[in-house]
Amino acid sequence: MTKTSTCVYHFLVLNWYIFLNYYIPHIGKDEEKLKEFHDGGRSKYLTLLNLAIFFGVACLDDVLKRVIGKKDIKFVTSFRDLLFTTLAFPISTFVFLVFWALFHYDRNLVYPKGLDDFFPAWVNHAMHTSIFPFSLVETILRPHHYPSKKLGLALLGACNFAYIVRILWRYIQTGNWVYPVFASLSPLGIILFFSATYVLSAGIYLFGEKINHWKWGAIVKPRRKKN
């Protein structure tokens, strides 16, 4: 893609996620049957918000490079890369893999069939399917400079921990789990589940780094740091 095409791509995806972050929470908000979903489930939209923020920064980076020049916006470019490598790609890929694996095993664990009466099928795919191809295209579209493995995995772990705290806090406040799968697990099972999520997220992070190096190795190698 040309720089103009990349800029247009970022702009279109950004507006798509802005629309979703506004539209999805308002679906069926007056339905009593969805009270549990909306009271305890807004954490589900964090993946969309995360991608909206990333593509917003990517758009800002595109615009500033055209207006100011590359050398004057190193901070924005570095922040863009940090967001993508430690958050956007690992989290979106993780959600895509885990959601659909559980959905096909037993959809009641993550997305009860009753929600189909209120949420169009495209909304489910917008939240849990489109996030992966958009992130994958971004990986192939342009190079991203990864931090050291120690820093990258530490930031990913911190974000995972913050999300776990949010899930537990919402449960304490509302008595409802963000996803029904947690209700079927014992306290030890929940601990093991959260531990496994970090291991999988870390594996995805390293996989994304491999893809980035395979596609852009000659470009990103000079800025890579040793652990």
Rank of each mutant, 00 (worst) to 15 (best):
T2H: 08
K3H: 06
S5P: 00
S5Y: 05
T6Y: 07
C7Y: 10
V8W: 07
H10Y: 14
H10P: 10
L12T: 12
V13I: 15
L14P: 02
W16M: 08
W16N: 02
L20M: 12
L20I: 02
N21S: 10
Y23I: 03
I24Y: 09
P25L: 08
H26A: 09
I27T: 03
D30F: 11
D30P: 01
E31V: 13
K35L: 06
E36V: 10
H38A: 05
H38W: 12
G40C: 05
G41C: 04
S43H: 05
Y45L: 15
T47M: 12
T47C: 15
L48Y: 09
L48H: 12
L49D: 14
L49Q: 14
N50C: 13
L51E: 11
F55I: 08
V57M: 10
V57Q: 07
A58M: 08
C59M: 11
C59Q: 11
C59H: 00
L60Q: 07
L64W: 01
K65C: 14
K65A: 12
R66P: 00
I68Q: 05
G69Y: 11
K70F: 09
K71V: 01
I73A: 00
V76F: 09
S78A: 15
S78W: 03
L82Q: 04
L82C: 07
L83S: 01
L83Q: 03
T86G: 07
P90N: 07
S92I: 00
T93K: 00
F94M: 06
V95G: 02
V95T: 15
L97K: 01
L97T: 08
W100P: 08
A101R: 00
A101V: 08
Y105P: 01
Y105D: 04
R107L: 04
L109Q: 07
G114Y: 13
G114T: 02
F118Y: 15
F119W: 13
M127R: 09
I131V: 14
I131G: 03
F132L: 13
F134W: 14
S135H: 00
S135D: 04
L136I: 11
V137A: 14
I140Y: 07
I140A: 10
R142C: 01
R142Q: 13
P143Q: 02
H144C: 03
Y146Q: 12
K150H: 03
K150A: 13
L151S: 06
A154L: 15
C159I: 11
F161C: 15
A162V: 13
I164E: 11
I167W: 04
L168R: 10
L168E: 14
W169S: 14
Y171G: 02
Y171K: 14
I172T: 08
Q173W: 06
G175L: 05
W177T: 04
V181Y: 11
F182M: 13
S184V: 13
L185W: 09
S186G: 06
P187L: 08
L188D: 06
G189D: 02
F193P: 01
F194D: 06
F194A: 02
A196F: 10
T197M: 12
L200Q: 03
G203K: 01
G203N: 06
I204G: 05
G208R: 02
E209W: 09
K210E: 05
K210V: 11
K210R: 13
K210M: 11
I211P: 02
I211W: 10
W214Y: 12
W214I: 09
G217D: 04
G217W: 01
A218D: 13
K221A: 15
R223F: 12
